[in-house]
Every structure is written in C-alpha cells, then in structure tokens.
Design a protein around this nucleic acid. Sequence first.
RNA 1: GGCCCUAUCGUCUAGUGGUAGGACGAUGCCCUCUCACGGCAUAAACAGGGGUCCGAUUCCCCUUGGGGCUACCA
Length: 472
Amino acid sequence: MEVRVRFAPSPTGFLHLGGVRTALFNWLFARHEGGTFLLRIEDTDKERSEKRFEEDIVQNLEWLGVMPDEPIIRQSERIDIYEKNLKKLIDEHKAYYCFCSSEELEEEYRAQLSQGIIPKYSGKCKSLSANEVSEKLKTSPAVIRFKMPEEIISFNDMIRGKVEFDTKLFGDIIIAKGLREPLYNFAVVVDDAEQRVTHVIRGEEHLSNTPKQMVLQEAFGFPSVTYAHLPLILGADKKKLSKRFLTNSLNDYKNQGYLPNALLNFLVLLGWHPKEDREVLTTLEMISEFSIKRVQKAGAVFNPEKLDWLNFMHIRAMDVDELVKNLIPFVPAEWKQNEKIFRRAVEISKDRLKNLCDFQKDSSFIFMMPEYDASIIPWKNTPAERVIEHLTQVRSLLEKGDEAHFPDETMKNDILAFAEKQGRGDVLWPLRVALSGKGNSPGPIELLYVLGRKESLERIEIALHKLGSMLQ
RNA sequence: GGCCCUAUCGUCUAGUGGUAGGACGAUGCCCUCUCACGGCAUAAACAGGGGUCCGAUUCCCCUUGGGGCUACCA
C-alpha cells in the first residue's frame, strides 16, 4: 500500500521549529518509503487563524525544500464535507446536539471536582427527544457531541509501542460548534480518511487525541491509520518549545543566517540518529538513512551550540559561488559592486563563518578601512623605526610583479623569506594590521589577495604615516 | 488532582545480560604574526530502591525526577 503522510499545521502563528521538525519527519518518511507527503492547513479556528501565517508556513517550507506532493488543502474550504459527515453521525445517533451553556458546564465541572469525581460531561442532552431538539434548535445555540463508547483503546505506536487509553474518562466530547463549525478531532478524522492518509506522524502532545480520533474512525467505518508520536523539542528549561511565543519562529533563524540544510540537519538529529556516527548530513543522506524505528522516545533539549556548529559545517561544504549567492541578502548593497573583491572576501572567510550574518561583521574592514590607533601596528615592543623599515621593504616587494596575479608566488615567497629573516611576527603582524586595521583578522597574504595591489599599498601608506607621526 | 508518555556525560545520542562509544560544548596542549580553522588530549553519564539471573546500564516492578494532555484551540 502506498504510504501517505501529511503535515497539518494550523495557521495561528509563524512556522515554528517544532512544526518544521514534524514536517521534516513526515517528509523524510514519505521520501524514504517512496510515498506521498501532503500539506493540510487546519484553519477551522476562525478567530486564531490568519492568512499571513498560512503564507509564512508555505513559503518557509518551500525555502526548506520540504514541499508537498499534492495541492494544499484548507479545512476552511471543506465545510460542506464536514457538515455532511456531522449529519451522518447525528442521523445514526452516534452524535447529538447539546444545549448546555458554558456556565452550566463549568458549574458541573466544579461540582464533580469537589466531590472527587473525574470531571466529564454528564450526558444530559443525550436523551433529548427529536422534537425537543428541533424546538430548542430554533432558539438556543447548540454544539455537537460525540457519544463516546466506553472501551479500552489500544494502539501500536511506531515509536512508543503499545499505548492504552480508557475512553470512559473522556466523556462525550464536543466535535463541532455547529454543523458548519467542525472542531479539530472531528475534522482531522474526516480529512485523514478523505486524503487516504496511512501514517500519522505528529508531536507527542497529540498522544491523548489519538484514542478520540480512533473511536471516531470506528464510528464512521474509516480505515485505521498507523501512528507515530514524536518526542517533543524542549527548551533549555525542559519545557516544550511553544508556538505561543513568537521566538523560535523559523524566520528568526533564517534572518540570522542559518542555512536551510543546516536547520534540517539539526532538527533531524533531535530525536533521531543515523546508524553510523555521522552527524553532518545532506538531505539526500537523511532520506536514505531515515528510519522511524530509530526515533527516540524522550524529549530532546534544543542545543543552540550544535546548530551553530552544523551551520558552520554546512557553510564550509558549500561551494564559493553558492555561498556568494546566499550572502547577498546579508551584506550592504555596495559590497556587491566590486564582484572580485566580494567573491574573494567570501573565499577567505568561508571556513570561519558560523552563520551568514557573521560575514558582514567579520569582513567590513575589507570594504571600509577602519580607523585604528598607530600603537597596535608594532609587534610586541618593536620600535617604530624598525616597523617602518619592515613595512617599507614589504611595500617595495609588493610593487614588483604582474598586476593580474597579485600577489604572485614570487612575491609571497619574498615576503615570507623576508619575514623569516627579520622575525615572522615583526614583519607579518604589522603588515596584517596595516591591511586590516585590526588586532585579529585573517592572515596578511590572504588580505593582499582580497584587497589587491592598489588598496594594499594605500593601506600600507596610511600605516606608515601613522607610524611616522608616532615618532615625532 | 486525573490520564498518558518518558529517564545513558551539561546537551544530542550509540550500545549490550558480562559496567559504556561518538558528537556539540568546556578545558588543556600543539600549529601559529593575531583571530579563526585544523590536530591531539582531558574532565564528564547508565536517577534511586527492589526483584529475575552466576551476573544487570540492558528484562520486570515500585519510587523519584522530567514532560504532555486534561478547551465550544490545534
């Protein structure tokens, strides 16, 4: 049988890391099994659902490369289908109208609690006659309740093994606020059946919804589905990363310069691990090695340092042109104007970037010479006169040779030979500071390569001036 | 409170009926003009108590810890 899975977010917030992880596991499972991955927007909650959140979810999934194989389905566009199915349940006496007000229910709940009884709906409206119902329907608001059968529901979770629930603890749950206002547990069951979903892979927070959905499936005579409940992603406080807070939206990570593949790689490792000890994985490798049997049972704490490291590894694995492209949104427009310098700057910093934002911070000195103090030019306690001598000597070496291949091999060798003779630090440090204006930076030869002859000589000139005025 | 899930270094995890391996992070050393990178090394865990067994981190039970759910949200 063809495997069909779905990611079914409700558009009540921006796409969140937990959601991405659920989508990813579904997608990997489908890809690995040669199945179909569906996207369903669960927007039955009209108050909380917003179009912009739906757009955010779809765009971000696209950015991640986790794309549905069939057109997106929206629950808000399927109200007729739910109505038909609700009517069917009512006609078959498997569901009934309930006219109890929230106040009544709350009172009932409190009374049960104080008597030490497990609180659940009393079933008061269940026995209303057809006439009573149609009379009341004219005047009072009503919800639709499902007649919960009392049984032990047990299912075999692909991750957790056998799980059991006693449905008599649930009471008759509300499955719709009206014929055209379905609620989650009901709508999910109808849609999963209609979309011929075979496996439901979702977060552990849904574990206790599963038996409710299973009894609904039985009531309809729908085929059963196989469940897998993923361990939750936890914050440093070990609490579920909640989408109620605006932090941890995927956009934040995107804007901070995390790569889609690094994010996916990080997320897949939260609760799953390939058979071998490899951790840096391409999406293709994730697909081929993915196995739901290897998914962890316990929640996983989100570890930002590991994300940084994975992002660093994925940046390194990228080729330079690709990285240049990715970096463009993260730098000032004028940086791109000199393509050669920009590309070379990317080249030398590729192995130092934790995220794409770092590039602007680390490389700004290349595009604009920073102001700096002359006192940082000399290496240790070298007298200024000597530093001037060294820099002057280096400058003359740089003036020789072919412009196109600057700095050419001979030049590099000459500088290194000179440095060897005079003391590496005594030559290389001042040269590097002259070129970068900073105490910490990439090496001087790399900087010559990025800056080119003209700019390098100008910067050395500035350094010589600074040193000169130090002497007076 | 009730129901359910869960438990290996700080974190992510591997693993087995014969006491634990990797990764991130941390620390130290090496490389080195600086910062990164890289290399090497060190510290760091089977929650506790009962069983079963010749022997349990591994199997069972209990406790404890952690988490989720307990909506006319999803």
